[in-house]
Every structure is written in structure tokens, then in C-alpha cells.
Design a protein around this nucleic acid. Sequence first.
DNA 1: GGCGAATCGTCAACC
DNA 2: ACGATTCGCC
Length: 676
Amino acid sequence: MAGFRIFDLNPEQELAVRTTEGPLLILAGAGSGKTRVITMRTAFMLSQGIAPESILAVTFTNKAATEMRERLAGLVPEEQAKKVTMSTFHALCVRILRQDIEALGYKKNFSIYDEGDQMGLIKKIITRISARDEKLDPHVAKNAISKAKNNGWREPQDDKTLIGAVFARYNAELKTLNAVDFDDLLLLTVKLLNEHPTVQERWFRRFRYIMVDEFQDTNRLQLDLVSLLAKPHPASPEFAGARPNVAVVGDDDQSIYGWRGAEVSNILEFEAHFPGPTVVKLEQNYRSTNIILGTANSLIKNNPRRRPKKLWSAKDGGEKVKIIAMPDDRQEAEFITEEINARKTAEGLKWEDFAVLFRMNAQSRQVEENFRRLRVPYRIIGGKSFFDRREVKDVLAYAACLLNVDDDVALLRIINTPARGISDATVEKATEFSIRAKTSVFKALRDEHFLMTLRTATRNAIEKFAAFLDEFETKLHEPLSNQPAVLRALIEESGYLPDLQRTCKTPEEWMDREKSVRDIIGSFEAYEGRSDKGLQGFIDEMMLRQDQEEDEDEGGGVTLITLHASKGLEFPHVYLMGVEEGVLPHDRSKLEGTVDEERRLLYVGITRAQKTLALTWCRQRAKYGSIVPCISSSFLKELDPELIEHRDVGEILNAPVTEEKAAAKFGAIFDLLGKI
DNA sequence: GGCGAATCGTCAACC
DNA sequence: ACGATTCGCC
């Protein structure tokens, strides 16, 4: 590795790369080459002889982690790149907990509950314990629980209130089920490292060099976790006085996760947590034209409480930013998709050069439909579409049952899917019994006392089902078992597929759903090829990957993405839709007093664009099925008018067809013909 | 105990 | 406008 050289870095970037020891704070403006600095720094550390196993890079999204891993693979031998740990906070926690959670009284095969599972459990608890006239919105309860956990509380403040009682009960039941929710992943890891010095010391020794990306988005627990991993245990003489090797990268202007508990103070007061850091400011933007950057700057300067910075770009010229008024959301989607289709040909671009950004996932639907109609390839990032599908959840629930029979949520999902003679009434009885006996539903199904209360037919059905699960559980855990084959056989023999087919209304729907069942087993096979963590590891990855799962066309296509998920990415040509009062800033942000964060969100969107940027808004929009009038976002008034060009599509549609437009249309047709 | 039809509530963002 | 839930009927 002696041959590694640092190339093409500006002096600030180089300082960041070369500072490997002690705390390091990198204030990286949008597009300032942050990912490049992180990967280069990692490569540099390796060239200095630092062991790859001792390097940990934490990001927020799987996407960012993957990109970083790929970029590093381009700089150093694959052997080394593979040994560096690059993961999201949550994935890191799963890894730590899978190894050491027994110290907290859980079993290692704990299940991870996503928001859907969480909601199901909360709803059940609310109906179970609330008095008949008391009403508690499960959403409210869920948010309160999440907030409490993120603040590091473990016990309810008082369980006299209904919400406190629900919280206490929820936590108790999760533990009985040997399950943890997303917030627990962080909370329990922090608890584990805090309360068990030997465990802490092992992980501290393991990761001697830590990097955290998007540090402005860390919450209190995440900061605690970083501190616990980076700082030696006070009772450890060996490392007494050692400075933590912690490098954090972030930009307060891109802090957009306040709603998730992110505390900008973590980055603004970094010095308080890690004294005496080297501070590096990256202010040269390599991504966008000065027009786009100027537009972004004119917006963000309206925010109070920022770290002063002066972002600049060497890229002059380029097109003005377009603000386009649309009659309604339907035509907005049509306009964007057709213009992308036309520009691809007219300007000789690739589909991957374009991205459509939006505030809410729901906005993507009409765009998708139009792209499908035009046969334009696209990929949706985020949006839980794949993972949210009934059949995917069902298959994963079957798998989860094999791994943890006490996982009630998974068990109840599939206990009578397909119908196998275990009715809702029976399930209800089993659940009641399990609560009284403080055990899981599966154990209740195996309990003699419980079975005696049932009719023979029901009892037989239960015994058959339990034996069925046992059989596959045994097969799964046999040494050298082919786990994907076991999963396939489980689904096959459960009779799930014919039942799924029966519930499909059209042959297309059946083909589609059957394909996603095949896809998920296929991804497990692929996973087995690259990992040795088996079904457990695969399920973990699926649970933590609400994002992506790209559709088969690996070529990519136009990117459809939420503003939140777009952070860290860049595209030559960006369309940002729905820039209306009520959408961006979102209505709720006004009630909550978080309009500044919405402004940062728009700032993030604008700074994704390299060459051209169009912002669209609609005069009316369909909401909940009915049409409501809209006005343009107040943020648009803050943008520097010198850099903006206004258009109104109402006028364009009525205007005669220009030669250029006709040419573009022809171009699109030729393009289509060329494909056939 | 299972199934289809009406009705209800939802659309803020992520791991 | 859509998907989940509930209700009523077989």
C-alpha cells in the first residue's frame, strides 16, 4: 500500500485526509466532496498501516454506506476494503446486539419489529388495557414511545396515565416476545455498553478509528453510542489519556431529521463532547453551477442560527433555475415526465442523468404512471413499496417464525394464512392465555392446559401447524443445511402460494405477487452467496432496509426520490415538484414551528442539482381524492430573482407548437423505435 | 369459520 | 383515490 497517493485534493480536503489521530470535525458544505474525503481518508489510513478491521464508518442510509464501500473498493485492494466496517447506525447496533445482547436478558435470536409490527402491538395493547370510554390514538402513542426512547428513558415517567401504562406494557411485551423495535436497537446498545464494561472494552478495542457521516443528524443516543465506542473505559489503564480517534462530517444547513430527534447541537458543540478537535471547513462546491449554488445560498441565508460559511463554485455559466407553474398535479407529472423523455434525446443524455424529487412519497405515483406509459425506465429510492407488500411480509413472517418461535407478531401473521382451521377466536384465546401465563403464543399453543380448552378439530389443527413449524425449524438448523432451499420448501408446503393466487383479482396481479415471492427467496439465495450470517442475517438486512430494493433493470433509469432520501446524492438534471405552501413547507411544520427545517429540506433539494434545476408547483392538487386550490411556496420568494426564470405551463400548452418542441417529440419517437 | 362488500381513515420524512 | 378494517351474510 506504499504506492497510495493523495491526488486532486484541495488543501482543506488534504488536511482532513491526513488528520488520522484525535478528534476531527469536518464542516462540509453541500457538494464539497465529503464522500470523497471520507473514502480517501480511509484509504490513507490503510496506507499508513492501520488495520482495516479497526476502522468503522457510520452513515445514516444503506445507500450512503454502499456508495462509500464501492468508492473505497476503487482505491484499495478488495481484500482490505472488505474488512473495513461501513454500516448504518442501526445495522451496527444489530451486529453488536446479536453478539452480546444476552447480558441484557434477551436471547440472541431476537426479532426486529418495524413500524408496522410496532403499530400492531401498540394497537392490541391499547384495546386490551384502556377503559371503554378512554381513547388513545395509536399514532400518538407510538410517537410518544419513540420520543421517550430516543431521549434515553427506559421506564415510563408515570404509568398512571394511559399512555404511560401502554409504554410500560409495550416494553414488557416486547421483551417477552424476545423482540426489539428500531429505537431499541440504539437504546439497548447504549445500555449494553454503559452497563457492561467488559463488553464496552471489547468493542472499543475493535474500532480504534471511527468516522460518522451526516453528524448533524445524530440524536442523543447516537452521540452516546459514538462516545462509548470511541472513548476508553475510565477504569482501563491501558488507554488512559488516549485521545479518541473520532472524525465527524456534517453540515448544519443540511440538518433535516429534527423530527427523529436529531440535535444540531451535537455538531455545533462538538468540542464539548470531544475536546480539542482539529476543525476543517470544506467550502468549495464541486457539484453545481454558480447559478444553482447562488439560488441555494439566497434561500438558506433566511435561516437563523447557522454556522457562518461561504460556499463557492468555480463553475460559471449554465442555465437559470426554472420555476414552473402548473394547472394541477396531474399535468405537473405529465410535464415532467414528457420533458425528461424529450430532453434525453434532444440533448443526448442518459436516463440516469435525471432525478425527480418530492416531499412526500405519495407524490411519486402519478410520475410513475407516466413513466410507465412512456416506457421510460425509472427507479424509486425509498418508499416502502417492495417491503410493504403483503406477500413479502408474509414470507418474511414465515422465516421469522423459524428463527424465533416466540415472535408473536410474525406468528399471528401467518398462523391462519392460508386458512388452516385456526380461527380468530382461537387465536384470541391463545393470546389471552399467553398473557396470563407470561409466555409467547407459540408456547401457549404447545401448552396442555390450553389445548384442553379447545375442541378436538381445533386442537388437531394447532398440533399439525406446530409440528409443521418445528419440522422446518429443525431442518433450518441442521448443520450444512441449504437455508434458501428450506425457506422455499416451507413456503411451498405451507400452501401459501395457491392461497395467494386465490386472493388475486387479475392474472397480472397474481404474476406480480408470485414474482415478488420468488424475488425474495432469490435475494436470500444471493445473500447466502456473499454472507455467512444465514437466514438471521438476511432478515436483519431486510428489516433495516426500508429503502431501495431496486427493480431488476440494473441499468438504472430516472431516479424518483424523496427530498430526505436524496441527501448525499447528486444528479445533472433535477426536477423538484410540488413546491407549494402546505407541501413544502409542509402544513404540519407550521404547527410544529419547524419551518426552518423545511427550508433546509428545500436547500438540500436545490443543491442536489449539478447543471439544471426546475421547481414546479400546482395551482390545484388532489388531496384525499378531492381537489383543493394551492399557492406557490413562500420559499420561492426568497430565491434570488436574478438567477430565476419563470414559466407557466398553462400558457405553453395553449401556445402553438414550436419547431424545437416538435423536433423533441420526433426524437422521442425515434428513440422508442430504436429500442424495438 | 370464511368470504365479499361497504366504510373508514389517510398523505411527512428514515432506520 | 387507495388500502385497511369492519360488517354482514353464507
